[in-house]
Write a protein that binds this DNA or RNA. Structure first.
Lengths: 347, 347
DNA sequence: ATTGTCCGGGAGAGCGCTCTCCTACGTGGT
DNA sequence: ACCACGTAGGAGAGCGCTCTCCCGGACAAT
């Protein structure tokens, strides 16, 4: 029974009711220029009495601002929501953590995030066209598509954009990221501190900056700790990959007593394998993960891991984007967050 | 170096370039009425040549449609994104599964979901005011706040709304849900079929419809299987609650050989307790969860669970909402989905 | 007094689009 | 031949808002 929209009050209505002009009401509503306090009061009462709320479309039309930003997830081509791949992306808690972080900054400013998905080259171009047509003020881009063209396309279109994680190829674009290498170093320090002597690592895919950096950072740190060679296997950032890598590692290096696993999901898999093979964690083999995702507390023993402050990073993305929108001439900036080691049970 | 917006092509520009009137271009772009095929072609070429994309704000202003819907998450008061509670909400993979499902329907229709959060009574009222100002066509509401006022407020405001899960109090509002009782029955059937004789259950909170229904459904099914009394403990739908409940259950009923746990998160906790106490799953105690969330595949043994088709449900919500928006006089409707038992290792 | 300055308020153009009219032009029936 | 009717395209009125421009009055400086 949706009562067919009974025409909502407009500025005009409020103006008439308050006995002033439309312009004055607009000034009061938007808090621009000086308005006599008495008139302000009258207008505010009229607003309350009529139940007036500004029409965003009309406002956008003239201001060329929509007070909404796109939250774009860019994923490899030809995956739909029913595909296992995309399903995994969206079902990753990380998605929700980003949203939560963004909202802490966006909501107080009355800016709404609009969800968008770029899952094909066509979609990417269409997206840019849509965004250019000024119905969106800026873009928060989370890209997990290797060699994604969107960062470039958006830069080229001159759209205010902030990336989650450093772009694969250098680009004049703002982003937030974590100090990956320093994070890996925290893991190394922990394992060494525990007294582990034969330390190995399960790495992420080599074509991802995060995978590379964590591996490099870990190796560097271990070298400084006097261990020149670190056995490593690639686990593809998946749970199954982690299991497989752990098995391989133990086969080739049965005396391993400490493992740095480049993300929690793989660590979860590794823990399962260790238990199946009868190795006690952390006593026989200590394990350190990365991310501090929900997997870290779903596992037994609880996972010691390097925490990535996703919510804070997302909030900062929102701040950077707002600044970029307010002042288009602004320099692009990057903000790098420090990770923290969360010590639980596995190391 | 954001090149300060170089004024984008408008309908007028396209019209001039094609040598026709604005109205004709509009007709071609929107595919309304009959337009001479030849002129259609000319206009389409002009559109391509100028790179024209409709301005949504201008269009919305006159059509009173925005082609965007709100995706509202309504949560209990006084929780912010940094609070553990809300953090958990947003980090629950379920959030992303909803979004994924919605997008499969919304995207092809060019409708965008706008994320909103209602975390206080003020926020709820403000939300309704915002939505009423016609800058949003409809609402997809996921409420996890007990006694939430939003379903009522939205109905009252005459806003097209679709709920995820049956509202706590009866209301003329569309919703999707699953056949909770039938789902619980599937779990019961499985446990009985495996030969379990002393079956118990860990339930969700009694103030949630899902918690109630699953418990009632399970009891009914067990009664039909000849077991009149089912020991049960409440686990609050959390992992810790599940652990605690499992411990309690085993203390009071040490000979339990099968457990239905009303969600996967609690089941995860239960599995940990069972292992700690040296009970083999599924041989000593069989466990069936509910939801088929990511926890189900993160556990060892892999969790046998009742699958809730969240993506399909979300897609249906989108369909219901679109129908409601297109025809406001439409009846409110509910769609109940069947669950499926996913047999893995734990039962 | 006269001029200049500031400041509060109103008038009105126009953002880019849709959609209702209206006109011009066939086409068919009588 | 005439009129009725259908059909394709144009003209133009807004949708609700912001913002520039303008005006009138208060006040200070000359």
């Amino acid at each position: 029974m949706t009562s067919s929209r009974p025409r909502l009050p407009t500025l005009e209505d409020v103006a008439r009711s308050a006995g002033v002009s439309r312009a004055t009401v607009s000034r009061v509503v938007n808090g621009t220029r000086n308005v006599d306090p008495e008139i302000q009061r009258i207008v505010q009462e009229a607003v309350a009495a009529t139940g007036y709320v500004p029409n965003r479309a009309a406002r956008s039309l003239v201001t060329r601002r929509t007070d909404s930003v796109a939250l774009v997830f860019s994923v490899p081509d030809h995956h739909t929501a029913n595909d296992p791949f995309l399903g995994r992306v969206f079902s990753d808690p990380f998605f929700g953590r980003i949203v939560g972080g963004l909202l802490t900054v966006l909501r107080p400013r009355g800016v709404h995030p609009v969800l968008m998905l770029a899952d094909s080259e066509d979609a990417r171009h269409e997206l840019v066209a849509n965004l250019r047509q000024e119905h969106i003020d800026g873009v928060v881009l989370v890209s997990i598509a290797p060699g994604d063209s969107l960062p470039f396309l958006l830069t080229e279109a001159g759209l205010p954009t902030v990336l989650f994680a450093r772009p694969t190829t250098p680009l004049p674009i703002s982003f937030v990221d974590i100090a990956q290498q320093a994070g890996a170093r925290q893991a190394a320090d922990r394992l060494v501190e525990r007294g582990c002597r034969r330390i190995a690592t399960i790495s992420g895919p080599f074509d991802s900056p995060a995978g590379q950096d964590r591996l490099a950072g870990f190796r560097n740190a271990m070298a400084e700790h006097g261990q020149p060679y670190v056995p490593s296997t690639e686990g593809g950032f998946t749970q199954e990959g982690g299991e497989h890598a752990m098995r391989e590692l133990l086969r080739d290096h049965p005396d391993t007593d400490g493992v740095f696993v480049a993300n929690d999901l793989m660590a979860l898999g590794a823990l399962h394998v260790l238990r199946d093979l009868g190795r006690q964690v952390p006593d026989d083999v200590a394990v350190v993960g990365f991310d501090d995702s929900s997997a870290a507390t779903a596992s037994r023993p609880l996972l010691t891991t390097v925490r990535q402050p996703v919510e804070d990073m997302a909030a900062e993305m929102a701040r950077l984007l707002m600044a970029l929108i307010d002042d288009a001439a602004q320099q692009t900036r990057s903000v790098i967050f420090k990770t923290t080691l969360v010590v639980r049970q596995s190391a």
